[in-house]
């Protein structure tokens, strides 16, 4: 009874504790029928600081504004941030829909952002490198989860990283390597490359097909309730929800909403 309570999703949600989730994952990984473990990347395998996305974009914009080309063209950090926010939204809308969902790609976002800023398209790689360096510096591995996954891999379970993200798989591999997670780089599925997401469930179907593994033989772990818990369970995948702490979510959510009101809604982007 006590074990069931400590492993319940409600407790995870209230406390943000990983303990119950990790023991549930260990139990699933030990099951003989289990053949594949899929792991969400951001805020699951690699943890972000408390700064929300818009704040990170703001910080990144400050850094990009100091590039020689930006200084030469008088491009301000405010303009870079505005361009990023507007172009991200438009890139998601403009992406070709697959199975009624659209997934944006960083290449398209940067192409649009550079056009917005009237900068040369060749700067795309510089912008991307800065973004990846910036992301790397603000991520840290989730050691308890990493250790458990390594233990399960040692027992013969295959592991794949599955992420809903605009970055491509080579960028995600770069982030993983930066944090010494080379053993997680072998199989990486990212929504931007396939045009389908975890949230819609289609990315799980694609993973199952490519890995030639039936849904019941897969276990998935991630922090997003809809994309990492509800969607895989609908497919028959055993899912474990590993959310960030309630205080983190509250702080991150409020901060992000405040910044979005300031930068997106009030500016009519």
């Amino acid at each position: 009874m006590l074990t069931r309570f400590t492993e319940s999703q409600l407790l995870h949600y209230a406390t943000g504790s990983n303990i119950g989730g990790l023991s549930a994952l260990r139990r699933l990984g030990y099951e003989p029928s289990r053949r594949l473990l899929t792991i969400d990347l951001f805020d699951t395998l690699l943890l972000r600081g408390v700064r929300p996305e818009t704040a990170r974009f703001q910080e990144l914009a400050d850094r990009l504004a100091s590039l020689t080309e930006c200084r030469a063209q008088n491009v301000s950090a405010t303009a870079i941030l505005e361009a990023r926010l507007q172009c991200s939204k438009l890139a998601y809308q403009a992406a070709t829909p697959v199975c009624s969902t659209r997934e944006a790609r960083i290449q398209d976002m940067l192409k649009m952002q550079l056009a917005w800023l009237a900068l040369h398209p060749d700067l795309r790689d510089d912008f991307l490198n800065h973004e990846l360096d910036f992301e790397s510096a603000r991520l840290r591995p989730n050691h308890p989860l990493v250790n458990l996954c390594r233990h399960l891999m040692h027992r013969g379970l295959r592991v794949a990283v599955v992420s809903d993200m605009y970055l491509d798989s080579s960028s995600l591999r770069r982030l993983l390597r930066h944090h010494g997670l080379d053993d997680f780089c072998q199989t990486v599925y990212v929504s931007s490359e396939f045009g389908v997401s975890k949230a819609s469930g289609h990315l799980f179907s694609l993973v199952a097909e490519r890995e030639a593994t039936p849904f019941p033989a897969i276990a998935h772990v991630g922090d997003n309730f809809r994309a990492d818990y509800i969607a895989p369970r609908r497919k028959g995948i055993k899912a474990v929800w590993l959310p960030r702490g309630i205080s983190w979510r509250l702080y991150n959510g409020l901060w992000n909403n405040a910044l979005r009101i300031m930068h997106v809604h009030l500016k009519g982007l």
Partner: peptide, 14 residues
């Protein structure tokens, strides 16, 4: 301007 950016995000060949 937004339409131009939007079009830029599409696959121009198709």
């Amino acid at each position: 301007h937004r339409l131009w950016l939007f079009q830029m995000g599409t696959d121009s060949a198709t």
